[in-house]
Each structure stands twice: as C-alpha cells, then as structure tokens.
Amino acid sequence: MVPAAHSTHRRRFAFTAGDAVKQGVLIVASFIALVPTLYMIATALKSDAEYAVDKLGLPDAPVLENFRAVLIDSPFALWMLNSFILVAGSVLVSIVVSCLAAYAIARMEFRGRDTLLALSTSLMAVPPIVMIVPLFVLYTQLDLISTYQGAIIIYAGLITPFSVYLLTTFFRTVPNELFEAARIDGAGDFLILWQIVLPLSLPALLTLVVVNSLYVWNDLLIAIIFLQEDAKRTLMAGISVFQGRYNNQVPLTMAGMVIASAPMFILYIAFQKHFIRGLMAGAIK
C-alpha cells in the first residue's frame, strides 16, 4: 500500500520535468536511428527529376519505376538467392557441428575438454581478416574460389565458436534427471541428444539461427574475396559494386537498398522477440 502510493506520487511529481526530458531524448534517438531508413524509402519512391529539386520531403507522386528497374535490369534476385544459399548452408553446417561438440563438452568427461572449450571460445576474438590470406591462396590452388561450398565452410567456421559457447552453456542447464531417466530406458547418447536435449534447446537454437544468419547475410569481407565471379556474388558484395555504377541515380540506388534490407527488416519486425533475445545473447559473446 505504502510503496504504491509512493510510486504514483513520484510519477505525477516527476512527469512535469524529468520524464519530459527523458521522452525527448528517446524521441531524438529514435529519429536518428530511423532517419537513414526513412530517407532511403522516401527517395526510392521519387523520380530522378523530383530528387534533384527535393531531397528531403516525402515523394509528391510516388513512382515504382526504380524498384522495377532494380529487379529487372540488375541481378538483384540472383544475388539474394546466392546470399540465401550461403546463409542456409553455413548455418546448417555450424549447427550440426556445434550441437555434437557442445553435447560432448557439456555432458561427457574427456581429456582436453576444458582446453577445447577455452580455445574455441577465444577464437571469437580473432578478426576474420587475419585468416584470409592463406585460405585465399589455398582456395586458388584447389579451385574453390567462387564456389558455394568453399565460402560455406569459411562462414561455418567463423560462426561456430560462438555457437559452441552458447550451446554448451545451455546444455549444462538441462537437468541431470532427464539424462538418468533416458539412460535407464536404454537410450544412447545420440538418441538423448536428438530426442531430449535438442527439443529442450529450441529457444537457444532459434537464437543461434538468428544471430548467425544475420552475420552471414550481412558480411562483406568474405563475400568480396571468396566469391568474385559475377554469378556467385552475394547481395552485400553486389550492392557494394552496384552503388558505384549508378553513382548519380540516387533514387535507383535507394530502391536497391530498400529491396536489399527488406528480408532482414521483415524478419526483425515479425520475430522481434527472438531477434531481441538473439541480439542480446549474441552481444554477450
């Protein structure tokens, strides 16, 4: 009773000054966070002529021509498909590898276990650029430049240390009794992993899928070095090339950016909860 009265009193009292300032700060921050997106969308809907005279306002007569031009006259759809293949491939490989390893690390006794986990975890801090040179030389030798499988292995490797770390932490929280019970029923380790641990770990797995997909989808460095052939370009590598080519056609470029950011944006709005949880878990890495 007393705390409630206190808190309503406080709220009414503070709103006049403090809360108004706080709202103001958050509104300004939200505006700054959104301004590039708003500019991108508004500009994409303008004609070149309109953009020349009005760079800031909303489009007077929205045109869709820019979107048509991007989708039809440039290989955007192909780039997106390439990105999608890489995301699907590398996230799948990484999840399988890290589930097996995390299960062993969390649930089995073996020599070198702690060293392996420490080593794997410390690799998260090694910047990807450091690994590029020998892999590039090797891939040239093996004819793996501009192949999906080549890039998928590199991406899978880069995202796996975090996956192992997260899954190990998660698997350790699964109660021991579940394992004992399954073992008495005669289930082997693989069955336990598949039928008990994984279903229980769905939230953690979903988080991993979100964080890792975002990483692979958004990457530029690996894409630009290891997928040089035009037919294998990813979306990010593609737009980095594309934007230079149409330097003066800003609305066209922005239409391309709207299309390029749409998949992650739609996923973000649709799966807010998982994204936010995923980003928070990913941030702690």
């Binding site: 966070a33 934007q243 973000y268 994204f275 936010i276």
Partner: peptide
C-alpha cells in the same frame, strides 16, 4: 523505442554505408 533503437544493428553495414554516403 527499444524496437527502433535496435534497427541500426539489423541493417547491414554495406546497405547503411551506401545510404549514408548519399545523405
């Protein structure tokens, strides 16, 4: 506000760099 201020981290760096460059 939380949904909005996380947006910069969802947008890919190349995309936002292209947009900022025009801005």
């Amino acid at each position: 506000y939380r949904v909005i201020v996380f947006v910069p981290f969802v947008l890919a760096i190349p995309i936002i760099a292209v947009v900022m460059k025009r801005m």
